[in-house]
Amino acid sequence: SLNTYQSTLDRLFKKELLSREKIGYAFHYQPRVERHELIGQLIKSVTSDFITEDDNSLIAAFTSISKDFNVEQLDKLESLIEAQKQKLNSEKE
């Protein structure tokens, strides 16, 4: 129903996932974060409850699902990991 859509959009707006502009009698909604940022936030939120500094369960879980990735996706992931490693190393220096 219309009320369901309106309340869902309003909750997303209050969580700062959407922006809105009043046009006439209605609000026009726009996303405030990119899709990859939202996915990253969701993953961080879910995994932070299960991971400690010395726990490798996230790596093990990720490894088990990586078999579903194609070569291009794995190459991209590898380059992102390498870039993050370089960033961390440069921050230490």
Rank of each mutant, 00 (worst) to 15 (best):
E78V: 09
D49V: 09
T63Y: 05
L17I: 03
L77R: 01
F13A: 06
I65H: 00
L74F: 06
T4P: 03
R20Y: 03
S66Y: 00
Y29W: 03
R32S: 15
K92Q: 13
H28M: 11
I39P: 01
S90A: 09
T63K: 04
D49E: 14
V46Q: 08
Q84L: 12
I39V: 14
T47F: 07
G40D: 04
I43N: 02
V33G: 00
V71C: 02
G40R: 04
S66I: 01
Q73W: 01
S48H: 10
N70A: 02
D68I: 06
E82F: 08
S1A: 14
L17A: 03
E91L: 12
E34T: 13
N3H: 11
Q6L: 14
Y29K: 03
H36C: 09
R32A: 13
E53R: 09
K87S: 14
F50A: 07
N3Y: 12
S57W: 05
Y5L: 15
A26K: 11
I43E: 03
A26M: 07
D54M: 04
S57I: 06
Y25T: 10
T63E: 07
N89D: 10
I51V: 08
K22Y: 01
T4K: 11
L17V: 03
Q41P: 02
I59T: 04
Q6K: 10
K67F: 00
K92A: 14
H28K: 14
S48E: 12
Q30V: 12
E78W: 08
G24W: 01
E37V: 15
T47V: 11
D10W: 05
I43G: 01
R32P: 07
L9M: 10
I23G: 00
F69D: 03
K87F: 14
S48P: 02
I81H: 01
E78F: 13
K22Q: 08
S90F: 07
L17P: 02
I39C: 04
F27S: 11
Q30H: 15
G40Q: 04
Y5E: 10
F62K: 00
I23D: 03
S7K: 13
S7D: 07
Q30R: 15
I65P: 00
L42D: 01
A61L: 02
F50P: 00
E34H: 14
A26C: 06
T4S: 12
N89G: 05
E93R: 14
R20F: 03
S79F: 07
E34C: 12
Y25F: 06
K44P: 00
S1W: 06
K87M: 13
V71L: 11
I51D: 00
L80S: 05
E78H: 13
E72N: 08
R32I: 07
E53D: 09
V71Y: 06
K85E: 11
Q6R: 15
S66M: 05
Q73R: 04
K22G: 01
P31I: 11
D10T: 10
S19N: 08
